[in-house]
């Protein structure tokens, strides 16, 4: 299969790879770069478990071709903690008991981060809207919504 060169940053680190033409960003990040925090729940863009940020935009990495990410800055949940300190969203997901099996959690956190990056103090409705592309089968969503609102409050208190 034809190989295509691609360079991007993953959680701030420069990466340069030859990838199969047509390979998804999900497969490249997981299998070639070893960051398994994005999950494959459907490979068809219906579950949100593979969500990542590409240049700050929420993207389904299972529907994104790696070769289209040339020069992009990619962020995953695996790269969110800095110097061993958890991101407020990660802390809030723990405090609110918002993860059970944990499989949807990295994607949920990405969806929530995309929201908070642009709307630091969201309403409940805005949180619901932001999470509506992500499937969770364990929690019943309520703890996840609460965690995102908690993280937003923690952010605004830190900023104040």
């Amino acid at each position: 299969m034809a190989k295509v060169p691609v360079q991007f940053t993953l959680n701030g680190e420069e990466k340069a790879e030859f990838v199969d033409s047509g390979a998804t960003l999900l497969k490249v990040v997981r299998d070639k770069l070893g960051d398994t925090s994005p999950k494959s729940g459907c490979n068809q863009g219906t579950c949100g478990a593979c969500s990542v940020l590409v240049d700050g935009e929420l993207r389904l990495s299972c529907l994104t071709l790696a070769e289209t990410c040339e020069g992009a800055h990619i962020v995953t949940t695996g790269g969110l903690a800095k110097d061993g300190v958890l991101h407020p969203l990660q802390r809030a997901f723990m405090d609110e008991f918002a993860a059970q099996c944990g499989f949807c959690t990295p994607g949920m956190i990405m969806a929530a981060k995309a929201l908070l990056d642009r709307t630091p103090d969201p309403s409940r409705d805005e949180v619901v809207e932001a999470l509506s592309g992500n499937i969770c089968r364990c929690t019943g969503y309520e703890p996840i919504i609460r965690a995102v609102l908690t993280a937003a409050r923690a952010n605004s208190q830190n900023a104040a």
Partner: peptide, 13 residues
């Protein structure tokens, strides 16, 4: 807290 996780999630399901 873990019991609550089960009960809330189960009720939703």
């Amino acid at each position: 807290k873990m019991v609550e996780q089960q009960l809330v999630g189960g009720s939703w399901m």
